[in-house]
Each structure stands twice: as C-alpha cells, then as structure tokens.
C-alpha cells in the first residue's frame, strides 16, 4: 500500500492504494466518483477519459500513483458554481447520447480536444501542418474525437454539440486549482 494524494475536481483526497491501482479504479472504487466509466479497461474505448492538468487521458491506462498532485477533473467537476458546462447543456440539446455510458468520457475528451485545438495542435486530417488557426471543421472534430466510442451511435449529436460550443464559447481549458485543504470544490 502507498499513500497517494489526489487532487480531484478541486478537492484533495488522500488514499491508501496498491501501486497497481489504476487512476480509473481509484476514482470509481476508492473515491466513489463513478461518473468516470469503465468500458474496456485497456485504452480502446475512451469511456474513462478524464482531464489531467487540462489534458485528456485514458484513466484506465494511468496508475493512480503517477497522478499524485496532478489536477484531475472528472465529469463531476466540469460544471462551475452550479452552472453546467456549456458542453453538458449542448449534449442534451443535441441528443448527443442515448444510454449515457460513454457520455462522461465524450464530455471530458471534448473539453480536452477543444483546448488542444485552441493551442494549435494539428490532427491527422489537418491539411497543412504549418497552418496557424486550424479551422475546426466537422471532419476535424470527428477525427479528434475518434478515441471515444459510442455504441448507441450518437456521433452526429456529439459532433453537433461540440460544434455549437466551439462556435459560441471561449474554451475553458485550464484545470481546476485545488487548495491544500480538503473542502468544497474551489473556483
């Protein structure tokens, strides 16, 4: 057993886990944060996507001990001050889910993806790698979101939701900063 201090959604959590425990299992089984989903436990489906310091990762392929003191944001932490994240609202309006099981991962992945795009990262479908200000076409969104599977086939709605938000909202990508006391999430 090792003691790990995780910063999750603005709160600091200390837990004793075996070094082999994945970040996903630490969230779900140790912290009761079951919003992050397990779909394959081998990095193939994206259901477990969370943000680590604002970057999207597959939490099933991450060990909890590796992420000590990193800022982890899960689906439970993407709303601010009781206001849903614009993507949450847009997913509902665009019917960007059916069963809901991949949704947490899609949401976190979309937040991370918009930040990557905002930072100028190209994708496999970007025509000219030297371009600055790559246009976020639907083809770009689809390519960049392809690590998140949806078996219900809500892809059109997900792309529509991301499109709506990308077109209207400045993207919030910075991680939630934690205070060094265990308390209510701080913003």
């Amino acid at each position: 057993m090792v003691e790990v201090r995780l910063r999750v959604n603005g709160a600091i959590e200390s837990l004793d886990v075996e070094p082999r425990v994945s970040l996903l299992d630490a969230l779900r089984e140790h912290l009761g944060l079951t919003g992050t989903k397990k779909g394959c436990d081998q990095g193939a489906c994206g259901a477990c996507t969370v943000l680590a310091d604002g970057e999207r990762i597959n939490s099933c392929l991450a060990l909890a001990v590796q992420y000590a003191d990193r800022e982890i944001t899960t689906v439970e932490g993407i709303a601010t001050g009781g206001r849903p994240h614009p993507l949450q609202t847009a997913f509902i309006a665009n019917d960007g889910f059916q069963c809901g099981y991949c949704t947490s991962g899609q949401l976190c992945s979309a937040i991370g993806m918009l930040a990557e795009h905002g930072a100028g990262a190209p994708s496999a479908v970007t025509e000219h790698l030297s371009t600055t200000g790559i246009e976020l076409t639907d083809a770009e969104i689809r390519e960049r979101m392809s690590g998140n599977l949806c078996r219900c086939g809500a892809y059109n709605g997900i792309v529509g939701a991301i499109r709506d938000v990308a077109d209207t909202e400045p993207v919030r990508s910075e991680p939630v900063r934690s205070e060094p006391v265990r308390s209510e999430p701080v913003r």
Binding site: R28, T34, P84, Q88, D95, G100
Partner: peptide, 20 residues
C-alpha cells in the same frame, strides 16, 4: 429533450456496478 439528460451528463446516473 430526454428527461435523464442531467444525470447522464453529470455522472450522477448510477449503472449497476456503481452502487456503494
């Protein structure tokens, strides 16, 4: 809009492995 939109987009919806 779906009635369960909020629980499904906030992680509050509990699936069968998620009952403590």
């Amino acid at each position: 809009d779906r009635l369960d939109g909020t629980p499904k987009t906030t992680g509050a919806a509990r699936y069968s492995a998620e009952y403590p």
